[in-house]
């Protein structure tokens, strides 16, 4: 091997260094949340509003623990029948799994459909004028408005919820995918062609990667749309398990702490996927592409 073998290559500083945590920001954020919780507890203790209308973090925490215990009981029961009986109640974990399962299917279909539609819209002038206009106008309808139709078409079934999720997310992703493709800098296409890339090779080696940063942004927005549609649909159609249903069952039983637990669960899922999952992917891409200093 020659001395300039690429594995021994000198790398410039920013790529090699691990990104350091900004400890100051972390401390400030955590303190802020702690202060909020303390304030919440104080306000709840002042009893301006009765606690069944505005429970403090202590009551909400208690219900949360109760939920966890019930789920542990369910888990034990599945492996071992000799557990003391507990009366059935809506399970937090199963609700989360149910909702995420619907997201998996609904969002998955939306991504496939949205990417395909987006590519078609970017490639064909005729489709852009026809289908594109239709998609743009359908996109202006709040997705939950499709639920009554879906209920009649698909009946009281998960399909109705999925239809709402898909209609809520797919069109937005079709539009953002089209934009991502149209915004590809022509220089990459010119360079790719002159280096000998054609058609499919050009698409998979160059166009895809050139569009990737914007594409991921569109997928993220699509996820948000899908998630909101799902929550709306689950709230309205509260006869099958799900996080949205958990929230509504809290309302039906006048169980305000449960409603708080459900809302915090919705928040936690949103933050996890938005910031941790998509945020990490986006940052990794932006750093590799050099879009972020």
């Amino acid at each position: 091997m020659s001395t300039d073998h690429p594995t021994k290559m000198v790398r410039l500083a920013p790529e090699g260094q691990k990104r350091k945590w900004d400890w100051r920001a972390v401390v400030v954020r955590i303190s802020f949340i702690a202060v909020l919780i303390i304030l919440w507890q104080l306000v709840a203790m002042m009893k301006i509003v009765p606690s069944y209308l505005f429970p403090g973090p202590d009551k909400v925490g208690a219900v949360f623990l109760e939920k966890i215990q019930y789920d542990l009981y369910l888990l034990r029961k599945t492996f071992n029948a000799d557990v003391p009986f507990q009366p059935p109640q809506p399970s937090l974990t199963i609700s989360i799994f149910k909702s995420m399962g619907r997201m998996g299917v609904g969002y998955g279909i939306s991504v496939l459909g949205g990417l395909t539609l987006g590519v078609l819209l970017a490639r064909s002038w005729l489709l852009k004028q026809t289908l594109g206009t239709l998609i743009m106008s359908l996109q202006s309808i709040p997705s939950i408005c499709w639920l009554p139709f879906a209920l009649i078409w698909f009946g009281i079934d998960d399909k109705a919820i999925l239809a709402v999720v898909i209609l809520g997310a797919m069109f937005s992703m079709a539009i953002s995918t089209e934009g991502a493709i149209r915004n590809i800098s022509p220089i990459y296409i010119k360079v790719g062609k002159t280096l000998g890339a054609r058609n499919l090779t050009l698409a998979k080696d160059i166009l895809f990667f050139a569009a990737l940063p914007e594409l991921v942004g569109g997928l993220k927005v699509g996820w948000t749309f899908a998630w909101r549609s799902l929550m709306a649909a689950e709230l309205v159609r509260s006869d099958s398990l799900g996080v949205g249903q958990l929230l509504d069952s809290g309302r039906q039983y006048n169980d305000m702490p449960l409603m708080f637990v459900a809302v915090f669960t919705i928040l936690a899922i949103g933050v996890t996927v938005d910031l941790l999952l998509f945020g990490t992917i986006e940052r990794a891409i932006r750093r590799r592409w050099g879009l972020e200093k």
Binding site: I187, K190, K193, T194, L195, G196, F209, L212, R288, W289
Partner: peptide, 26 residues
Amino acid sequence: PGADRTVVFQEHGLMPWMTVLRNVEY
């Protein structure tokens, strides 16, 4: 377009997702 007539443009047009070596190898 063909690889027997390569072009250097005003914009470098290096693929930002590839290392320098991968760009040259592409």
